[in-house]
């Protein structure tokens, strides 16, 4: 039973890897910036899943902590990149009262 579940987990990890490779295709050919950002975000989610499954396969549960950290960092990175491409700077307050009209909205 234990061996069977190890094989199932290994197959799941392999399929997640295939899915990550396909997501890299969208990252390379994405026509707009937002397509690429979406691909990066989804790739990060799949990385978290791959880490969780692969930790069970190799029997070392340390990597789940890394997966936990990666899930949070992925979200923060997405928001940071979005903010940078909106305002072209990272030290802008996100409060609405600090945005002067007509300026900053990077269209």
């Amino acid at each position: 039973m234990e061996h069977m579940m190890a094989y199932v987990n290994l197959g799941a990890a392999f399929l997640i890897l295939i899915s990550m490779a396909m997501m890299l295709g969208r990252l390379l050919i994405g026509p707009t910036l937002y397509d690429r950002l979406l691909a990066v975000n989804s790739f990060g989610t799949k990385t978290v899943l791959f880490l969780c499954v692969f930790c069970l396969v190799i029997g070392r549960p340390d990597g789940v902590d890394i997966a936990l950290l990666y899930a949070l960092m992925n979200f923060i990175a997405t928001i940071a990149v979005l903010k940078y491409f909106r305002y072209r700077a990272l030290d802008v307050s996100l409060l609405k009262s600090h945005i002067t009209k007509g300026e900053g909205a990077g269209k």
């Binding site: 989610t45 789940v64 899930a71 928001i79």
Partner: peptide, 29 residues
């Protein structure tokens, strides 16, 4: 730990999707 990962994913993933959609819409896509 798996439960914590699932909790953070279910909080952050729709938020990030909404942020990307909002940014693309604001940028005129």
């Amino acid at each position: 730990k798996f439960f914590l990962v699932a909790f953070f994913l279910i909080v952050t993933s729709p938020t990030a999707t909404h942020a990307v959609a909002n940014a693309a819409y604001q940028a005129g896509l």
